[in-house]
């Protein structure tokens, strides 16, 4: 898998309240509708600007806050192919893998909005074509690679009948 697309840069501490605001709580059973508001409180025009395949790039502690799996789900539904950040909050990180959204830990300081990125998920390399950057990202634990490769947790359990740790 080598997704390509543009970067959308955000700052530190992007909470799940910014990604999936509580005032859209009533859309939790209507995720395609909720996805129209993705990242709304961080950038109100994001949902209308993002193109299929693009990347969200954060700073540190991306996804802090609630356990709402709706947050990574609507990021994925909006067409985002991966989220890159210097660090992630624990529950958001685990949820992203469970919904099949790659989350990559790397040094995002130099990446800017509009940069063209190309990511090799197998080799663990991020290329920034605009800034001529080659970044590496930390490998995931095996169980998470298995879940991600199977397309998310439900598909993973359907396939193996259990968690596959190794």
């Amino acid at each position: 898998m080598t997704p390509k697309g543009s970067a959308w840069k955000f700052g530190d501490n992007i909470s799940t309240d910014l990604i999936a605001p509580g005032r859209y709580f009533h859309l939790r059973s209507n995720l395609p509708e909720m996805a129209k508001h993705v990242m709304e409180d961080a950038d109100p025009s994001f949902a209308s600007k993002v193109n299929k395949g693009d990347f969200i790039v954060g700073g540190s502690n991306f996804g802090l806050g609630s356990s709402r799996e709706h947050a990574p789900t609507i990021i994925k539904l909006a067409g985002v192919s991966a989220v890159l950040a210097k660090s992630f909050a624990r529950i958001f990180y685990r949820n992203s893998i469970n919904v099949g959204l790659p989350v990559l830990i790397c040094d995002t300081d130099k990446i800017q909005t509009g940069d063209e990125l190309e990511i090799d998920l197998v080799k663990g390399i991020i290329l920034d074509r605009i800034r001529n950057l080659k970044l590496t990202f930390a490998p995931l634990p095996k169980v998470m690679i298995n879940i991600l490769n199977d397309g998310g947790l439900v598909a993973h359990i359907q396939k193996h009948g259990d968690f596959k740790l190794s």
Binding site: R94, N95, N98, V143, L153, I157, D162, L165
Partner: peptide, 20 residues
């Protein structure tokens, strides 16, 4: 500890989860 809906769905169905 807190987790997302999918993890808790598996935990309530299979009675187990994975943890680091």
């Amino acid at each position: 500890t807190g987790m997302g809906s999918s993890d808790v769905a598996v935990a309530m169905g299979l009675g187990k989860t994975w943890l680091r």
